[in-house]
Design a protein around this nucleic acid. Structure first.
Lengths: 194, 194
DNA sequence: ACTGATATTAGTACCAAGTGCTAATATCGG
DNA sequence: CCGATATTAGCACTTGGTACTAATATCAGT
């Protein structure tokens, strides 16, 4: 049984999408049509040629690399900071942060934003989270912008502890709250550690 | 002043490394030598041609994509799961998970492993973290393998809540502990939600 | 059954970015 | 000045295309 032009073109899109390195020649054999037909199809569907396709994929890969690196430093974008007092960061929920089925942001991204903000607000060489108490008040959805505010509550030089409270909001509605007990070296102050 | 062959070849390596899309023709102009010389250089240095270079970069990008996707699903590798009872995952601390200066794993990765395990162990369509209480007992360092065990403590069908406890260890020493209060839809059981 | 539109195939010239090979010319060290 | 090394030149060939023209097939409607 023969395919219609539409069927073939739909299949062509799928085939290229999950192969990407396939040449017109190979495609023509796969669909048992001439190479010219494949080229007309690509033209109609405005699918670029092989070299352009892979070039595009290659440049995209660089962006991914940058993204994943950035994600490992401070999560979210810092917009304000007063060391040992407070800090604010914003974080836009994109498709890579959500549960696919429900468009709701995965909890660990909210935690990561809050936790890295708590680390950043501490004016020391090394700061680690010791304990924390979290409350995920309201689900955050795709496309929403989360504003996290960290406030230093108390600093205990003796015990090398700092207590930080982080509140995250979306359009002024609280979506997340966390208390963080942080350990830090006291290098800038008394430097008796290590 | 003229360059030696060695100097040129070293520069060639650098140039290609941070350009990747440059053709022999452009290179020949940049180094004011003939295209043939560039080709001999590439041959000696076994640098593949432009098309092969970008093809290679493109395939590498796919791996990245897979990695970052996998990273967005369950963090760590699941080794055992009994729905609504317990689950175990392992997570190897790599260079991308640490504070550069101290080789210590960032807290949010430990949280992410524990939290995603808590989500996974719940036998429902949708599970979200409501509250959690964390304790970062001991710093985890580069190269260490973290084993997280999640145990379902209690399931409250009325209130659609499940309580999960996660303990993470490195070589049998506890490094992290967390209690998670999870919200879930009861679709598999009574389906009165939504 | 015939006509016209649409789809498909074929063929040619051309391009980019190469490889592979041979031969000529520079350039440098001893 | 001689020989080795380095560089340049030229040509045929390859892949995976574009752009264009022309011929043929297929189908739908009257």
């Amino acid at each position: 049984m023969k395919q219609t032009k539409k069927e073939r073109q739909q299949l062509l899109i799928d085939t290229i999408k999950n192969n990407l390195f396939i040449t017109d020649d190979e495609l023509s054999k796969q669909f048992t049509v001439s190479v010219q037909t494949i080229r007309l199809d690509r033209l109609e569907l405005s699918i670029p040629e092989l070299r352009e396709r892979i070039k595009h994929a290659a440049t995209k890969s660089f962006k991914d690399e940058v993204r994943s690196l950035a994600l490992n430093e401070v999560i979210g974008e810092m917009v304000d900071i007063e060391l040992d007092e407070r800090a604010i960061s914003i974080f836009d929920v994109k498709s890579e942060h959500i549960f696919k089925r429900h468009q709701i942001a995965r909890g660990h991204h909210l935690f990561a934003q809050a936790n890295s903000l708590a680390v950043a607000v501490i004016n020391e060489e090394l700061a680690l989270t010791v304990k924390s108490n979290l409350s995920f008040v309201k689900p955050v959805k795709l496309g929403e912008r989360v504003v996290a505010k960290a406030i230093v509550i108390r600093k205990d030089h003796e015990k090398k502890r700092t207590f930080v409270e982080v509140t995250s909001t979306v359009e002024n509605n609280i979506v997340f709250k966390g208390q963080f007990e942080m350990y830090q070296t006291n290098e800038t102050s008394d430097g008796d550690f290590k």
